[in-house]
């Protein structure tokens, strides 16, 4: 199968922007990053299959190449799950803001306390 340089660079670029945003402490930026990274994953899946005529029986005439339906089915699942996760992230971002009145997520106190805690552990 052929690789496409332009598509590959687009995938990498989307990932880079998405990851850059996800490394932020701001939950809305994390959400934006998640959406971009999601698009990148979908493109990566798409690039693993051949393009062509839509995979519907009877569409391809004169032996034209038909697009690979399996990556498409995977991407379809991915898109819908992406919707579910991004709305959940949105709700989380809002709730975080509602409670803390800060757009940023602070360091987890419980974890940072562990770093300096007495390591003899809990009770049980």
């Amino acid at each position: 199968m052929t690789s496409n340089l332009v598509l590959a660079v687009t995938i990498g670029g989307l990932f880079a922007c998405g990851i850059y945003l996800m490394l932020s402490r701001n939950l809305i930026r994390v959400l934006l990053g998640f959406l971009l990274a999601g698009h990148a994953v979908n493109l990566l899946l798409l690039s693993s299959g051949t393009g062509g005529v839509a995979p519907i029986v009877g569409e391809a005439k004169n032996g034209e190449p038909v697009a690979d339906p399996i990556p498409q089915a995977l991407i379809l699942t991915s898109i819908v799950i992406g919707l579910a996760v991004s709305t959940f992230l949105l709700a989380m971002a809002y709730r975080n803001y509602q409670v803390t009145r800060e757009p940023e997520i602070a360091d987890d106190l419980e974890d940072s306390e562990y770093a300096g805690s007495d390591p003899s552990g809990g009770d049980e």
């Binding site: 199968m1 990932f15 051949t50 690979d68």
Partner: peptide, 27 residues
């Protein structure tokens, strides 16, 4: 730096993956 490195890795992956598919797709 992390973002660019990860992006570059994914680009490389996107270039290599199609070449590794040698069998006829099930589809």
């Amino acid at each position: 730096a992390i973002a660019l490195a990860a992006g570059a890795l994914m680009t490389a992956l996107a270039l290599i993956i199609p070449g590794t598919r040698v069998g006829t797709p099930v589809s």
